[in-house]
Design a protein around this nucleic acid. Sequence first.
DNA 1: GTAGAATGACTGACCGGTCAGTCACCACGG
DNA 2: CCGTGGTGACTGACCGGTCAGTCATTCTAC
Lengths: 200, 200
Amino acid sequence: MPTCREEKRDQIHRAALRVFAQRGFHDTTVADIAQEAGIAKGTVYLYYESKDEILIDVFRRYTDAMLDAVDKLLDSALPVPEVLEAFVALQIDLFRKEPDLVQVLSRRSLQALSDGDERMRSFHRYLLDRIARLLDRGTLLNEVRAFDPRVGACVLLAMQETLPLYMSVYGAEASSDTLARVTRELAQFMWCSLRKENPC
Amino acid sequence: MPTCREEKRDQIHRAALRVFAQRGFHDTTVADIAQEAGIAKGTVYLYYESKDEILIDVFRRYTDAMLDAVDKLLDSALPVPEVLEAFVALQIDLFRKEPDLVQVLSRRSLQALSDGDERMRSFHRYLLDRIARLLDRGTLLNEVRAFDPRVGACVLLAMQETLPLYMSVYGAEASSDTLARVTRELAQFMWCSLRKENPC
DNA sequence: GTAGAATGACTGACCGGTCAGTCACCACGG
DNA sequence: CCGTGGTGACTGACCGGTCAGTCATTCTAC
């Protein structure tokens, strides 16, 4: 069983995700991560430069995967309402499949953004820009009413980033049914405001 | 000039707000706060129990003021579209008047929420609930189309809490003109989706 | 046998919180 | 008007705990 370097990093990465989600980044010690991964503290440093680098790796994997998915989605020629629903579903699905990751992100990603983290900054800038261009395209194709597409982009992204938190405030259980319903409702809410036929 | 206890707490509070906004809570030492306030480190502890208590005080003053304003607004019998615009304007005005406070909140309030801070939790629950009831009232009065009011409440609150961050991503200058325009656009965006006449 | 991986005891920087000491100010008696 | 003693707000050196990161030693696979 030759565990190569990448596999070992992954093992540490997954352990870190679990304890970060439970205790938060700051209240987690490197010893906690090592214990969760079933290795010694020193071993962590054979695969990661520092504790910070582990968190940065969490961000990197997330932003890479999300950018991939978003690009694939927005490059498709689907009509706007379907893109909206699929976009909202991206985060909701992540919430279902990787609750620990979403938990860490909701604690840290907006903080990293306001701390001036350049990766998070450009990630957000890129997403906002791509969504705005989608809405712009919709306007040109006469599917979407004329308005500032950046406002729409903000609303959409804001929902993605805060939804899991608000659901926990409501105490809503994260069942597949609930999540599917919320996804539909949200996409419909957006589309209701955007559609050309709207008499606003 | 007899600086009473409350004035001195206020002096420390304002100094803390400035350095928290600049460096973030965790990267600020009590010595930093003391220096900014022009006093010695020990003096801080004559007026506050702990460093944490200073941050809690920041939260408390904000939530108290915001709940007051929201209650006043929602208890008024204004029509829904006007309430929406005034609601969005609450945070935008705060952003203009107290940029340091908004900076600290955008770094910490969602994190505190997901850390399980009970004050933040009940603050959000109360806001979401009041907004949802407003939308419900609108539905009953036949101003607002029928839909899940909780989804609308989430969208509205999400905007309030993330807007300053996204504006900084856009690199938008926080001029009164820009802020007023964004407020209008957002309220219109919400209302476009909510109004009864919408053919959704 | 040995090379590279893994270990975990150790180090030292850091920082929240403490407390013995200072001193500006005031009251009061001479 | 001055000297003396009392007061308490304020100070900052210091303490103790924590924890990221190091490295001499041990293990293991070949």
